[in-house]
Design a binder for these strands. Sequence first.
DNA 1: TCGTTTTTCTAGAACGATTTAGAAGAACGA
DNA 2: TCGTTCTTCTAAATCGTTCTAGAAAAACGA
Lengths: 346, 346
Amino acid sequence: MSPGVTIKTVAQAVGVSPSTVSNAYNKPDQLSAAMRERILAKAKELGYAGPDASARALRSGKVGAVGVLFTDKLAYAFSDPYAVGFLAGLAEVAEEFTTSLLLMPLSSTDIQGGTNAVQQAAIDAAAIFCVAGGHPALDTLKNRGIPMVSTDRGDHPDLSWVAIDEVEAAGKLGKHLARLGHRDVVVLLDNAEAAGSQPVELTLDEVGYTDCELRIRGLHKEMPDARIRLVSGGHNAFGSGLAAAEWVLDSQDRPTAIVGLSDVLALGAMEAMKARGLVPGKDLTVAGFDDVPAAESAGLTTVRQPIRDKGRAVGRVLLDPATTERQITMPTELIVRSSSGPAPRN
Amino acid sequence: MSPGVTIKTVAQAVGVSPSTVSNAYNKPDQLSAAMRERILAKAKELGYAGPDASARALRSGKVGAVGVLFTDKLAYAFSDPYAVGFLAGLAEVAEEFTTSLLLMPLSSTDIQGGTNAVQQAAIDAAAIFCVAGGHPALDTLKNRGIPMVSTDRGDHPDLSWVAIDEVEAAGKLGKHLARLGHRDVVVLLDNAEAAGSQPVELTLDEVGYTDCELRIRGLHKEMPDARIRLVSGGHNAFGSGLAAAEWVLDSQDRPTAIVGLSDVLALGAMEAMKARGLVPGKDLTVAGFDDVPAAESAGLTTVRQPIRDKGRAVGRVLLDPATTERQITMPTELIVRSSSGPAPRN
DNA sequence: TCGTTTTTCTAGAACGATTTAGAAGAACGA
DNA sequence: TCGTTCTTCTAAATCGTTCTAGAAAAACGA
């Protein structure tokens, strides 16, 4: 690119006004075809690559990108096929509207000062994926006046979301486990503070994300007599599920069932069992949430949710003016596979 | 957000110049702490959410985002764990530099006119993931003067890339297959034109991406006596591999080995074999490229490349000024598993 | 032919910040 | 006390577009 060649340069070279050059790019019907040809040709000759993105965005107020905000570290988002599926659905719709996807890192540094990516991000709207309700980044976006759609139901009635009924979803699984006779359950969950150290047992109050809390509540509801403990091995990833399950399995006080609040956690738990010669569904029941592709081949009992559709729906609410519904509940389904079985009688 | 509240509004309300407000956000050491406090407080009171992203980008020339350009449709990118792994590595580094990732859809519409996402995207630099050398989007970016790093070696010596030696990598697999006695191979590959229709057999000239071509050449090199046919079932996805393999397996002229140019394609082929009661490594050999996580559990012989590291390296070249190397070759390794075995004697 | 509409193009003001150069005052050393 | 150096703040220019309003020319209808 020849540096410093702007719309003005081109205008001068062709002998027209900058407005006309602008129109050549944005409103072809506002000038004669011949003139447009001439401008485009000259632009190419000069090495002008079209209107500058930032300037255009500033003036027109539209950026052509929607932001995506993830739980935790961005890099972790890709370790969960569930998140990836969501992204795929969202990308599909974004593509349709010729809109880019801006993945924002959720660094905790200097929220106040504005050196934050969420502050700086040039976006027209944002998709909020499994971010806890009170997170400061949400306030930042709200402050910026950026329309948001969350994958969790919020408290505010004017909030847009595409979500599942977490309590009901977990209830389905709870009922299934209760019927199988389980009364001693360990729930594996994502917890930032447990990352990098030993697995920890948490109380319900310490559970961060609303949806996790709701799922636990759903389990409780259908398993009123059961003891339900909460354990985290760190971030939402296979390794964390593995670590947490190892810790649980090697303790004196084994449960009869382990429920991963996501499939990756549950799959990690299955791995830990495998290493100990334990057969899922026989020696111990394991179940998860999401129904990611790997769950099927692993024979994992799980609560399916249509994740790709969820991504698509978020995209539509965000980008499609024809979509008027702003609060959408997606269906869930209990998928029973071999990893769940009757609780052993003691 | 109160609409129309800008840096100027805040400046007036506090009784200072706009520059000072700007400094309060960007250069805290340029003003007294007391003044900074006052400004930030007033800003909050007025509902000012910090400097506007576009305006800042325009003036300062830095956007704080790097673009990612994928082969084909954006939505397909997420169906390949290989691409996802790359993204994860890239995201890691981006996070470190508080930089966002802008995923650009590669829509073919109106390249010339500039309504293109690649044209419009506000980015400082771009990562090019498996995009064919001659693609118009690359010219667009080049024209815009945006620094690029590709995952394929380019022809131009001044191009930056982080890649593997494709010919050598494929050669490792070729040697392995030759030793096992295979002389009749079908290569499964990604081909946009085959999408949505019947699988097709291609000639080497019709193969799009340079890296695919190089891999095929690498196979030829180590298997000079073998017949190597090229078949595509569409995009780079499990389903395409499945479809293509079905077509191959149901034909009169079965090969003794099927090589997927990516693991997802090879895994699709394994699925097709399974459905026909064929045992990989016994009845027919299957091999892939990449070594995605699923390859291990499936027992797929494949050529491993450190994809996450590749993503990280691209990120470093793109963002880290300390990284001076601009052309990096990553190592590859042949991973032999149960899916490859001796060719049956006829 | 003359007024009216349509087409084609333009001038100049935004858009909202950052940057450069420098002014005014405070602090400092001798 | 005086000249020098910091510290703290400001005025004005600038980044590259798009937008609004309107002028000039061309086409049109009767």
